[in-house]
Nucleic acid binder design. Structure first.
Length: 271
DNA sequence: AATCCCACCTGAACGC
DNA sequence: TGCGTTCAGGTGGGAT
């Protein structure tokens, strides 16, 4: 579920329920996530107000009275706002109750996610300080990508997914954006010219914005106990479509592997 | 500094 | 029915 659009949709969904609320109780059922969830949160968080919920890259940042609660959804995490009486199910590892009878519930079968506390300047956090720009911000433009890719032999797809260069783009949207830009995922990043960088940046922004819009429109009530981690529906052009015909030219969509991730592309439309 | 590749973990889909 | 294999939306960290 979670690349930038899904994290942003999650942020918006929970923000209405949680922003301005005071934390009343914390439950940690399984602290073994990517890093151990500190048991100190149980004493530390109650009484603190959630002033705002922000997003940086794929991290959700709960700005609290005395610091920031950082959450990452990993590969399989999701967050829902539920009545505090809702019984936990398998893989419901963490609850954060607030003062309106609701709670934020963190579910993550694979436990690649993270829940961390940071009481300093959030920009100085080790996980955040080296991140690249937000892809939807103006500082991520063709010139930026052109400069960053000079001398790089790594493929453009791997560079797009490198969070130290630009954040938020995962495997699905890297594949999709490269298709829309007509650029081969296998191309060396340093081989792209200025115009290709411009096109790719435009494609990244358009793809992410479209996904947010689609996710937003299909997203239901976050308080719904039924809410499975699949509200987000999207028509993919290449992702997951190996062997099927390209929606643009009809050529069979190719599949290969780059850096242990599946890559999908149309060899006819992308060069 | 860039690149490669492993590790972490569960569950679903598939082949035999 | 069961068992083994492969794959899945991420990313830090160690080795080269």
């Amino acid at each position: 579920m979670p690349e930038l659009p899904e994290v942003e949709i999650t942020r918006r969904g929970i923000d209405t329920h949680l922003a301005g609320r005071v934390i009343t109780q914390i439950s940690i059922r399984n602290p073994v996530l990517r890093w151990p969830v500190s048991p100190e949160l149980i004493a530390l968080l109650p009484g603190q107000r959630i002033n705002a919920i922000a997003r940086r890259a794929k991290y959700l940042l709960f700005a609290c009275s005395r610091g920031t609660l950082i959450m990452h959804l990993g590969m399989s995490g999701n967050l829902r706002v539920l009545p505090e009486s809702t019984p936990p199910q398998l893989h419901d590892h963490f609850d954060l109750q607030v003062d309106n009878g609701m709670m934020l519930r963190f579910r993550d079968p694979r436990r690649f996610g993270a829940i961390l506390w940071w009481d300093g300047d959030i920009r100085q956090h080790p996980l955040l300080q080296k991140l690249g720009p937000e892809p939807l911000n103006d500082d991520f433009d063709g010139q930026f990508l052109y400069t960053k890719t000079r001398g790089r032999n790594a493929s453009i797809k791997e560079v797009l997914m490198n969070q130290h260069i630009v954040v938020g783009i995962g495997n699905i949207y890297a594949n999709e954006a490269l298709f829309h830009a007509g650029i081969s995922p296998l191309a060396a990043a340093g081989s792209l010219n200025t115009m290709q960088c411009e096109r790719l940046v435009d494609a990244v922004k358009a793809t992410l914005l479209r996904a947010i819009k689609a996710g937003g429109s299909s997203l239901r009530d976050f308080t719904d106990c039924e809410g499975s981690p699949g509200y987000f529906q999207q028509q993919y052009w290449v992702y997951g479509r190996a062997g099927q015909s390209c929606r643009h030219c009809g050529t069979s969509v190719s599949k290969t592997r780059q850096g242990q991730r599946s890559t999908f592309f149309c060899a006819q439309c992308q060069h």
